[in-house]
Computed example of a mutant assay.
Amino acid sequence: MNIPEFDIPTIDIGAFNDPEAAERHRDAVAAQVDRAARTVGFMQIVGHGIPASTLHAFAAATDAFFALDSVVKAAYRCPPSVNRGYTPPKSEALAASLGLVSAADLFEAFNIGTEAAEYPALTLPATDYAPNIWPAEVPGFAAAVGDWFAAAGSVARTMVRIFGRALGLGDDGLVSVTDHSLDVLRMINYRLPSPETVLEPDQVGMGAHTDYGIVTVLWADAVPGLEVLGDGGRWHPVQPAPGALLVNLGDALARWTNDEWISTMHRVAAPRIGGVLVPRRSAAYFHDGNIDAVIAPLSTCVGPGRPARYEPVTVGEHLRAKLAGSRSRVLNPGAEREAARLVR
């Protein structure tokens, strides 16, 4: 059997950041995104407009936090129901978000996100739109991380405009489900005790999973680890191109498109170079949609011979089931279609 070559396209989205760009150029970008969304669910994004200085300050701040003593970092841990603060190594298993049992993941993380106070006219659940906590031990952490949160969020919102155009809804076609989006920035460090660490069977940096929301904007070191599941059940290594951000689709968008677009299965293998375990950093900005938005197939994605493949569910219900799996090991019973891609 000939397995097609696996390819993650590089797409320049600069036309959507240039008010003078011709509509045909924006249409061409939307067509490229549509093709990637239907075939692989991942893309390398350039022309995003984030200055290198913003990234450098952000990376320095996260490095400083993860270098702190484990006892100091543990003071910033939140309950599993609050998606903020510090997550120690081996305290999550992302595969459980798919209803699968696996060894605990190696990564440690620190999360910030959208706060209810940003939308004073709305009554938003405080647990979901929780206040952020900031480590006092790292001067300038809040400013540097906040700048990256804003920059990555701008890229995510640009991608949503492109998605709307690609789906025939217009650039503002998804605004009604994203105008108070529950967004989270997860800073991740694949913390390993030593290069000689012996791993448990099937233990990885981060277990196989699909992302939960609409779109993920990912910055990562140019270090091996990230792998994407392709046709034939093969895992393909992926590294960001110089100056590019990786963008992938989440389950909510796949469900809105009735699986015409793909939320691609991916994982992070224990990072190795020459067979030796090495450090690796990344930061994922999750643009997940409004907590009260109903995920049901878009009108352009259903019709005769194209029945809805999912029961309607709110973004809040969907995210809580996913997080209960990864953080509390309550296996998610509502992810059968996503999990089937991994086990078939």
Rank of each mutant, 00 (worst) to 15 (best):
A117T: 13
A220I: 01
G250M: 10
S326C: 15
A152Q: 07
V238M: 02
F16H: 06
A151W: 03
A75F: 09
A284M: 01
A252V: 15
G207W: 05
G146P: 09
L253F: 14
G164R: 10
W148Q: 12
A339V: 09
S263G: 10
F16L: 05
N290Y: 06
A37G: 07
I133A: 15
A244G: 00
M265V: 13
N189W: 07
F110W: 05
E115L: 06
D221S: 09
A339Q: 05
V315L: 08
M159G: 08
T62I: 14
Y190V: 04
A144D: 11
G275Q: 10
R84A: 07
P307V: 00
G41I: 06
Q32D: 02
S102G: 09
E118G: 15
I13E: 00
G47S: 00
P135A: 11
E317Q: 13
A339C: 03
S97K: 05
V138D: 08
S194G: 15
T216N: 07
V313D: 14
E196F: 14
G113D: 01
A222N: 04
P19F: 02
D179H: 15
E336S: 15
A293R: 10
G49W: 00
A126I: 07
R38A: 07
A324H: 11
F141M: 07
P120M: 00
L342Y: 14
A321R: 06
G275C: 12
L174A: 15
H48E: 01
S91Q: 09
A220E: 08
A142P: 15
D292T: 01
G49F: 00
D147Y: 04
P224R: 02
Q44P: 03
V215T: 04
P312I: 06
R341I: 05
F6M: 04
A321K: 12
L106E: 12
Y212R: 07
G170R: 12
A117F: 06
R327V: 02
V217C: 05
I273W: 06
A156D: 02
F286V: 02
P195C: 14
G316E: 08
T87A: 12
A143F: 14
T39V: 08
L246C: 07
R306V: 02
S154C: 08
A64W: 11
R157C: 14
T210K: 05
A222F: 01
T123C: 03
G305T: 00
V29P: 00
D288T: 14
D259H: 14
L253D: 11
R306C: 09
Y190E: 03
A21L: 01
M187T: 12
S194P: 09
D12F: 02
E338F: 15
V177D: 13
